[in-house]
Design a protein around this nucleic acid. Structure first.
Length: 879
DNA sequence: TGTTTCACG
DNA sequence: ACGTACGTGAAACAA
């Protein structure tokens, strides 16, 4: 049986994948959709064809010979969007990693190389398959050369196959005559002019009849449609030129060794790593375990079995400047520790026998007096090892987060790849599967030990590169002066938690249930049937189809039933009112009443986790439960705050910054008028209204104030007329007019925001006042939506991020002060611009003063930082 | 697992 | 013509 070669038109398939599939980006914002689509189709074809050889051809970037000819004649080609262009090197990298031969040559298009290889291979007796999205390639079809054209319709990819016979069937001409057709019709995408007035129909007729352009020209007088006759007469030269342009060169001087193109195992460790980096999760399953673990580090780690060994180890460690540490633990127990003394000297100490968890933790605490403990996550270690602010630690996770806050997770294997020259380590899942630490411990302490060693190794080895990068990006200060101390502050908040009255929460929930059931009944009655009100899909059908409420479609899955839409649509409908109330109550019950009840711990307190490495802007986030979104805007929800109470003998002191983001904006932009406004006014929105609408301060109407407030918010969010118009229910034009007036009033604000976008575009990131960075890859997108998003982000992030920096500083200072002054009061919550202190009654005065001083003094801006402070027996009262 | 909705700043 | 305000997390539903 003859051998088979598969030739792929790289750019064309990449193009297909790009336009045929939704744009995909990985968590770092890298565009990967086209590469993903390319690989999927490649794998599919390989399974169908099972070729012996495989080669992918690419155009070089420079304009090729054939195009130059025409570009000189008329215009240039449309540029490739950057999201696609950046994927070209990526697909080549992936193919190379899989050992796939790629070819390209100066002065020749991919078509030419494909044609050349196809004919060469055919001559050698091979069967040839060409995969392309470009119909031009049909001119190459023969009995042995098959052209395969993938087509995407309705999300499904079907492939059309053409040997010479099928070309004749479909186009009524032989493959070489495809050139004639094209030369007559022209092709704007390929810059082939063609001749005017001749489309597919006429061209086909002419070629079927005369066989070629030249022959048709010789029989010009017989040529039928008069229009075609005249056009051919007049533009014959153009047709001949077009023919040259349309002809694929099948005889290029490409050097090609078939052995290099022989198809081998594509599932190499390199390809696996690359796919993982690109987050092609579906593709990873194609790689078998064997190829995965090959190139990884050889794990010759040591295990420390007995107490004397451990003693010696810690002694040795104490002499080192840095060690890598991974504590194997969960919330309750310590199972052991991995310690890296040197990059080649890594130990695992299981917690067993005399080496109890407590013993290990004590040793670590002691070690941190002299040696920097490098950990992936210091705060989790703190749960067991009572390190203090004077302990020496390095937090790899936070370092990596600062360097790229867009990543969604910071696992050790990712860190190794990024900061250790692409070093490939097995992942946690490779080593432990999906087991928890506890589960893995019960199975075998050995695999767990290996895992601990890899993590400890990574923490030690990556410390240097990360530290260097933090210096280079001028974020070392943010790291040491804000983030690292904050680890201790947050840990303390987590450990204290906040007291919650469980019984009251329960009865609150029961009260809600009664009303929810009433509403449910009423809604079902009004709808005329029972259905699940919580299902947006069912609700949409009921409202917009059954009840015939004029509804606009909105989401990709159907009707939007979001509150603001329903409110605008039919505020008078009784059912709508009921649904909105139902929704509100259902939310309160499920998320807050039931949700919070479920996480009250035996100490009657809720211990949330404050995450420091999640947000893109530098804010912290709160999970399990989220205590940063406890209701406050609506009275009914706000009542929940009554169940958050201080311990006996304590009260709550709640302090929040007044409009910190607007003040930051005033400072960063340096706009004198806004700064002056803040120096004068208690009511900034009113003053803004007065200045923007040119009315005396005392004559500002409530509506004007509301509008000014919305504009102020809009500015902080990265203003757009559309967003503002939505918010205020006005037209875009009106919104645009407000914005313009605002910028006229505060001229430097406009300049400042424009500058943010410009430098963001230039540098690829924007920065806060303290130097924290956020990359904004979207700014370079050719997609209008994405680019606009990037612009808003560029305007918002420095503001939101600077405010976040400031309150973090305040938290650290408040925490430090209370500790230094030996107070029993403690910081328990942070809600972005608000701090909640569980304050000992005797310390109220002192703590108020500390809050006032440290919050106001956290930054020195050209406008004062004001705070509002309240005292209360519960959170409701204190706010 | 992704989508929708909604709670907060 | 495109279809958005910025930043989060949790619950419920729909596949």
């Amino acid at each position: 049986m003859s051998e088979k070669i598969l030739l792929i038109d790289g750019h064309s398939i990449l193009n297909r994948a790009f336009y045929g599939l939704p744009d995909l980006t990985n968590s770092e914002g890298k565009h990967t959709g086209a590469v993903y689509g390319f690989l999927n189709i490649l794998f599919r074809i390989l399974e169908e064809e099972k070729p012996d050889y495989l080669t992918v051809a690419f155009d070089l970037h420079e304009p090729t010979f054939r195009h130059k000819m025409y570009e000189a004649y008329k215009g240039t080609r449309k540029p490739m969007p950057s999201e696609l262009r950046e994927q070209v090197p990526l697909i080549r990298e992936v193919l190379t990693s899989m050992g796939v031969k790629t070819v390209s040559m100066a002065g020749y298009e991919a078509d030419d190389l494909l044609g050349t290889l196809a004919f060469r291979s055919e001559k050698q007796g091979m069967d040839v398959t060409i995969l392309s999205g470009d119909r031009d390639l049909l001119q190459l079809a023969t009995d042995k050369i098959m052209i395969r054209l993938p087509k995407t319709s309705r999300g499904k990819t079907t492939i059309e196959n053409f040997h010479a016979e099928q070309v004749l069937e479909k186009y009524q001409v032989t493959p070489p005559q495809i050139i004639e057709l094209k030369a007559l019709m022209g092709d704007s995408a390929d810059n082939i002019p063609g001749i005017p007035g001749v489309g597919e129909k006429t061209a086909t007729k002419l070629i079927v009849q005369y066989g070629s352009i030249e022959n048709a020209h010789e029989h010009l007088e017989e040529v039928k449609p008069n229009k075609a006759k005249e056009s051919l007469r007049e533009h014959y030269d153009l047709a001949v030129l077009s023919k040259t342009l349309a002809t694929i060169n099948t005889d290029s001087p490409l050097e090609f060794a078939y052995e290099e193109a022989r198809l081998q195992d594509l599932y190499t460790p390199e390809a696996y790593e690359l796919c993982k980096r690109l987050e092609f999760k579906n593709l990873l399953s194609r790689f078998d375990a064997a190829s995965v673990s090959q190139q990884t580090m050889t794990d010759d780690f040591f295990t420390c079995e007995d107490l004397s060994g451990a003693e010696a180890l810690f002694q040795k460690a104490a002499a080192k400047p840095y060690v890598g540490v991974e504590l194997l633990c969960d919330r309750e127990d310590v199972y052991g520790v991995g310690i890296a003394l040197e990059e080649e000297e890594v130990y695992h100490i299981p917690a067993q026998g005399l080496m109890t968890g407590d013993y290990l933790c004590g040793k670590l605490k002691e070690l941190a007096d002299t040696t920097v403990l490098c950990c992936m996550d210091v705060k989790s270690v703190l749960k067991h090892v009572k390190l203090t602010e004077t302990s020496h630690v390095f937090d790899t996770g936070i370092g990596v987060y600062l360097l790229n806050p867009l990543k969604s997770s910071y696992t050790f294997d990712d860190v190794a790849k990024e900061y250790l020259d692409g070093k490939l380590l097995p992942t946690r899942e490779d080593l432990l599967g999906k087991d928890s630490i506890q589960k893995a411990w019960e199975k075998s302490s050995e695999g767990l030990g290996t895992y601990a060693c890899y993590v400890a190794y990574t923490a030690l080895a990556s410390r240097g590169p990360i530290e260097k990068a933090l210096h280079e990006t001028e974020m070392w200060k943010v790291y040491t002066e804000i983030e690292l101390p904050l680890v201790f502050t947050l840990n303390s908040m987590e450990e204290w938690g906040i007291r919650v009255k469980g019984e009251e929460l329960k009865s609150y929930g029961e009260k809600l249930s009664v009303r929810i059931q009433e509403l449910e009944k009423m809604i079902w009655e009004q709808a005329g049937e029972e259905f699940n009100i919580n299902s947006p899909k069912q609700l949409g059908v009921i409202l917009f189809e059954k009840m015939g409420i004029p509804g606009g479609k909105k989401t990709k899955t159907g009707y939007s039933t979001a509150a603001d839409i329903l409110e605008k649509l039919a505020p008078e409908h009784e059912i709508i009112k009921n649904i909105l109330e139902y929704r509100q109550l259902a939310k309160l019950k499920s998320t807050y009443a039931d949700g919070l009840s479920a996480v009250i711990e035996p100490d009657r307190r809720i211990h949330s986790t404050f995450n420091q490495t999640i947000t893109a802007t530098g804010r912290i986030s709160s999970t399990e439960p989220n205590l940063q979104n406890i209701p406050v805007r609506m009275e009914l929800g706000r009542l929940i705050r009554k169940v958050f109470v201080p311990e006996d003998g304590f009260v709550f002191l709640d302090a929040d910054y007044s409009q910190i983001e607007l003040r930051v904006l005033a400072h960063m932009s340096g706009d004198e008028k806004l700064i002056q406004a803040y120096r004068e006014a208690q009511d900034i929105h009113r003053l803004t209204a007065s200045q923007v609408f040119h009315v005396p301060f005392d004559e500002v109407t409530p509506l004007q104030r509301r509008n000014a407030k919305a504009v102020n918010f809009g500015i902080v969010y990265g203003i757009s007329s559309f967003g503002l118009s939505q918010d205020l229910s006005i037209t875009r034009k009106e919104a645009a007019a407000y914005i313009e007036k605002y910028f006229e009033t505060y001229p430097k604000i406009k300049g400042f925001l424009d500058e943010l976008v410009a430098t963001g575009k230039e540098k690829g990131y924007v920065s806060t006042m303290l130097g924290r960075r956020r990359p904004v890859p979207e700014l370079k997108s050719s997609n209008f939506m994405q680019r606009s998003f990037g612009e808003r982000v560029a305007m918002n992030s420095p503001i939101q991020g600077s405010a976040a920096d400031i309150i973090k500083i305040a938290m650290n200072r408040v925490y430090e002060r209370m500790k230094q002054e030996g107070l029993e009061s403690r910081l328990v919550l942070q809600v972005h611009d608000e701090l909640l202190i569980e304050t000992k009654k005797e310390e109220i005065e002192t703590v108020s003063k500390i809050l006032e001083e440290e919050m106001k003094g956290a930054a020195h801006l050209s406008v004062e930082l004001e705070i509002d402070m309240h005292e209360g027996e519960n959170w409701y009262e204190a706010k």
